[in-house]
């Protein structure tokens, strides 16, 4: 159900956006647009069907931990 909803929305967006770009022969724009839309769709569908996606912020937190600790340590 959710997946169908997402696909309908995506299809609508694609319908309204692609034709003007195609008309103006903006091929590169079209590629980037389609790529982004694809990413968005895939991610949303993954979310909708309940695939657990790791939180990228956790990784960021881990990587930056020493810096964070250093800065906050200055002020603790």
């Amino acid at each position: 159900m959710k997946v169908v909803g997402i696909l309908i929305v995506v299809a609508l967006i694609a319908y309204f956006e692609i034709s003007p770009m195609a008309k103006k022969k903006e091929i590169k724009d079209l590629w980037v647009f389609s790529f982004l839309l694809l990413i968005g769709t895939v991610l949303s569908i993954m979310l909708a069907i309940g695939v657990t996606i790791p939180n990228p912020l956790d990784g960021l937190t881990k990587v930056l931990k020493p810096v964070t600790n250093f800065i906050l340590g200055l002020l603790d």
């Binding site: 770009m21 103006k24 724009d29 982004l36 968005g40 939180n55």
Partner: peptide, 29 residues
């Protein structure tokens, strides 16, 4: 920034895909 990255002509069509990605990020992050 995406327009600049790929040297595109217009940013307007990008807004919807970015919007979808943002909602996804808002939930996942």
């Amino acid at each position: 920034s995406i327009v600049q990255l790929f040297a595109l002509k217009t940013y307007k069509p990008l807004t919807f895909p970015i919007g979808i990605i943002l909602i996804f990020l808002a939930i996942i992050l």
